[in-house]
Design a protein around this nucleic acid. Structure first.
Lengths: 345, 345
DNA sequence: GTGAAAGCGCTAACAA
DNA sequence: TTGTTAGCGCTTTCAC
């Protein structure tokens, strides 16, 4: 409890005085109490409670060099994408795992290049123990900034191009290529022969990898590809475009569920039945989207929240070991995907 | 630049040595350089640049008792509402204003009552200079927790019930009652006589105040009220319900734009023309919604981003003056609304 | 097992 | 104008 008039909080010293012990002993008790005899420890805990003592964070950080805080860096376009359940789920995973490690999530919201300086200063200033960043766009400078700050960092999604110093940065990503491959193979297995692809923005590695998986599965027989923007509307537009150019399509693999749902709408508007006339597969398996459509989407599931948690664990690994020089190169993780069969394919 | 092998960052001391001055002088230069002769200051700045010196935040906080960080507390249900452009805009305003005050936004995401302890500890631990919180639900314990932490705080939206110690907490809110009043008066001025209201969730003060404004404007002549949940779907449902019960409605005031757009859809489905048969007014003036409908919505505008910025300024006021005992009771601000006329009424 | 003492890196009086 | 000197509140050897 802070003194109501001065706002001053009790210090370790005050607790020590009250409990009749030294500051060191109080410190030990506050930090777990190892090596302090029970009766003494109890007396200290009592004093702590009576005084409403709460350790001063800055003082602790000053000596331990640990902050108990991790920055999550989200650039404007992605932040807007919070309406895409994808990001919300990933951040939720991060938030939960961080809480388990007694770390605070500090959200850094980057609105534009103007903010880069501020971010660099913040990261460099030792406010946080590490950083988690999402790198979606190829031409994004953020990854470079983060890497240069020398703060341990883990990326969500394979970074496009850490220009200049492209020493490996650890990242967590799902197996985009493999997932896409499986989705398309599933369509092939269904006897479909004219399989189109609605791709995401091709400056994002996830979209690129999914196109690769699609092409790989089809080999020379790969069909038309239209580019969308991972949104419902863009999926609808891409679908319309594909149908105009190739009215005889019998299957579509969309690079995410949002675009698949847009595509679905257009297919029905054109009087095409799903899956009878055109089979449709999405990606992500975001429940609120994939299960809500009619028919529900067959889609490639990735464990989004799990990937968020994994980012935190990787970071904690680096923090745990690496005092100074990191020996083992930081390792990235590519998580598996699974095909979830519903009614659309 | 941290030492690449030890990870150690240069200290003030190192800079002082290199520049051949005292630590105090370096400190002065780093903090604005007032009262240091130019040549000396330049030498210091040079040393700072050469060494890549960045001040240690913890050390600075320890002595200044300022963190340069403000917590923004968002509870789960509201966070999900990021898909509602409303929240995004308000947080953006906060983020920008905070940046202007060289403060960091620390996002605290509360998922449930389990997190209350963690939040209380965080707030109590002196990690942040102040807190901004959104209090939407009447039965939310968050306001009480924030108030008890003794950290200066400003709320977004009039808090429902700070139970127990309900000494005034400062908040920023738009004039919900007045805005609603004006909207309804506008409908009356249009000659409408059977004016219904689609309310928001009645455990939120904003929704309550808007109902009040509606009733006040209509006096004894107030029409039917259906309750929604500030979402498009709930607006559609409420509209359907109202039309079933009162097919002769000639106007509707919806408590936000999202619900108005849902209502609009139902009106058209039932073959009613807007505004000819039924005039429609919304609330908030979220551009992506109000301007996108057909016809575009007449609505009550509030400066959402501005309110976010205002929250920060109020907080900074409190932080600036109040070293210890706050004298003047913290003041709340109710911002004006304006009616924006478009085609729907 | 417990206490004494030495800092962590910085700012802010106070002297010079 | 510049330097000297105390701490800020905490952890952590190191003696006891």
């Amino acid at each position: 409890m802070p003194d109501p008039t001065t706002g001053a909080r009790p210090t370790l010293e005050a607790v020590a005085a009250r409990a009749g012990v030294s500051r060191a002993t109080v410190s030990r008790v506050v930090n777990g109490g190892a090596g302090v005899r029970a009766p003494l420890a109890d007396r200290v805990r009592e004093a702590v409670a009576e005084l409403g003592y709460v350790p001063n964070h800055a003082a602790r950080t000053l000596v331990t060099r640990r902050n108990g805080a991790v920055a999550v860096i989200i650039a404007e376009p992605e932040f807007r994408i919070f309406s895409d359940p994808f990001f919300e789920r990933q951040v939720r995973g991060i938030s939960r795992e961080l809480a388990m490690h007694d770390s605070q999530l500090v959200l850094l919201w980057v609105e534009g290049a103007d903010d880069h300086d501020r971010i660099a200063r913040y990261l460099g200033g030792g406010h946080v123990d590490g950083a988690l960043a999402f790198s979606l766009h190829d031409d994004d400078e953020l990854p470079a900034i983060v890497v240069e700050s020398c703060v341990p960092a883990v990326f969500g999604g394979r970074p496009g191009g850490i220009r200049g110093r492209d020493r490996a940065v650890p990242y967590v990503d799902c197996d985009n290529r493999g997932g896409a491959h499986e989705a398309v193979c599933h369509l092939v297995g269904l006897g479909r022969t004219r399989i189109a692809h609605i791709a995401g923005p091709l400056d994002q590695t996830s979209a690129l990898d999914r196109v690769d998986g699609y092409r790989e599965a089809l080999g020379g027989a790969a069909g038309p590809v239209a580019q969308g923007a991972f949104t419902v509307e863009s999926g609808a537009r891409a679908m319309a475009e594909l149908l105009d150019r190739h009215p005889d399509l019998d299957a579509v693999f969309a690079a995410n569920d949002l675009m698949a749902s847009g595509a679905l709408r257009v297919l029905r508007e054109r009087g095409l039945r799903v899956p009878e006339d055109v089979a449709l597969v999405g990606f992500d398996d975001v429940a609120s989207v994939a299960e809500a459509t009619d028919p529900p989407l067959t889609t490639v599931r990735q464990d989004i929240e799990g990937n968020g948690r994994l980012m935190v664990r990787l970071l904690m690994d680096v923090l745990g070991e690496g005092n100074g020089a990191r020996d083992g190169a930081p390792h990235s993780v590519v998580t598996p995907t699974t095909l979830v069969r519903r009614a659309s394919a």
